[in-house]
């Protein structure tokens, strides 16, 4: 099914939303991602991903209060749904399992 697997960037965005808690709106997510991943994150990309995540039912959103910054436009705050939480956990689990079966030796030699 489409909704069960997370893309790499989707996962990052989802994690950021979870991390930012009550302040997760598009521009903040963008800034946070840029800070953490050290790569150029485009607003357009984040927007598209947020839209897709909402369609998949992994996040939900609501409009905040109007302020006099942003040309008087309201922010759309995102929060993670339980389905989103589950898919994050599942992704982590898959990774952990994979990590656990890598022999120590193999990694050390390659680094």
């Amino acid at each position: 099914m489409k909704g069960t697997n997370l893309g790499e960037f989707e996962e990052l965005v989802l994690l950021t939303i979870a991390a930012l808690m009550n302040d997760a709106y598009s521009v903040a997510i963008c800034d946070e991602l840029e800070k953490r991943t050290d790569r150029d994150v485009k607003l357009g990309v984040v927007h598209a991903v947020l839209n897709r995540l909402e369609e998949k039912g992994l996040v939900k959103s609501k409009l905040g209060e109007a302020t006099n910054v942003r040309g008087g436009k309201r922010k759309r705050y995102y929060s993670i749904t339980s389905a989103g939480k589950a898919s994050l956990l599942k992704a982590k689990e898959v990774r952990d399992q994979l990590w656990s079966i890598i022999p120590d030796l193999a990694l050390k030699l390659n680094v």
Binding site: Y25, V27, L63, R70, R74, K75
Partner: peptide, 8 residues
Amino acid sequence: EDLEGDLH
């Protein structure tokens, strides 16, 4: 609305 705000 959200998009307009972000761009602004």
